[in-house]
Design a protein around this nucleic acid. Structure first.
Lengths: 172, 172
DNA sequence: CCGAATTGTTTTAAGCCTAAAATGTTTCCA
DNA sequence: TGGAAACATTTTAGGCTTAAAACAATTCGG
């Protein structure tokens, strides 16, 4: 390679002024592996919830959010926490109110807002499921040492921050 | 704590004969963080695919599988690779055949089997999307060092193996 | 104060996804 | 060879999910 092309390449890598097709195969593989892990575990949890408790994963997730909020949450809160669309929450809540697990009421101070809470039934059923759920998760991760867990936590925190930054770059 | 209870606890942890409510909060947090990362990145990729190419993520994923298999794949192959149900693939393929991206034919040697391939259109569109997709992923993971990437790959491989083992324990 | 943005929720249309049952085909083996 | 088991796919019924549009209530700035 000539001195001139060396110089051009150096400029490229320094300034990013020219498009050189870089190799991002490693990041791609990492993303696929991350996705595989999540899909695998999620499918396993979904199946166990259905078999043991005849409940779906989204219902369980919604109840988990509410269990942490004794004073209730608004639908937008839930939607942000669960990272799903608003309309999605509307339907989910509808079914859980119908089955007696949730209580929904319009806020006294802002008539746009719906506040939802677990009912007694909802809370007791959730607690029962959550206890077992925790053992499933422990079993699924059983081969990881405490050090592995710590290290994964750290790297995933870094990953999350990186992805959030990238997302913010696109729509500021 | 008495020597007797020491002894009992030791037996517990050695033999797992008695149920002691152990603390699995760390594993639970790890799972939630893993899920958050995946959901975040998946949502971002989904949005970009829709905006730039008006294509859905499942369609893109299916085409990605086929791009790696020039001789085509059977529906079950695809279903296993993508870790989704058979019926799901049927519908997905239907729509992609309809739009001219896929070619589906019954196997000559086994009339149960459907073999699908990318059409010329499908392949060229996929390659165009994949090139850009790769840069999105690189950007989403941009803050990870090469060492971080390697370490995550290793730990996720271990996680996957652990989860598969746990799943196999349940349905052998 | 009043209209314009903003905010919270629901609706709509389309597609994705699953588990289970049904259908058609091949293989296995007694 | 005949039928049972296994396999590949489709169908079914129901639920999940999204983006975008519509609707309702509040807030904000002039």
């Amino acid at each position: 390679m000539s001195a001139v092309s060396d110089c051009i390449n150096m400029l490229d890598s320094e300034t990013k002024a020219v498009e050189t097709p870089e190799d991002h195969a490693e990041e791609l593989r990492l993303w696929l592996r991350l996705l595989t892990c999540t899909t695998l575990i999620e499918g396993e949890v979904r199946g166990r919830l259905r078999q043991r408790f005849d409940v779906t994963l989204p219902r369980f997730d919604l109840m988990a959010q509410l269990d942490k909020a004794p004073d209730g949450m608004t639908l937008s809160d839930v939607s942000k926490r669960m990272m799903v669309s608003n309309g999605n929450v509307t339907g989910l809540v509808e079914r859980l109110v119908e089955s007696g697990h949730l209580d929904r009421r319009t806020s006294e101070t802002d008539r746009r807002v719906q506040v939802i809470r677990l009912t007694k039934l909802g809370r007791s059923e959730f607690r029962r499921m959550a206890a077992e759920h925790e053992t499933w998760i422990a079993d699924l991760f059983a081969d990881l040492t405490p050090k592995d867990v710590r290290e994964l936590m750290r790297l995933l925190a870094k990953t999350k921050a990186s992805a959030q930054k990238s997302a913010a770059r696109r729509r500021p």
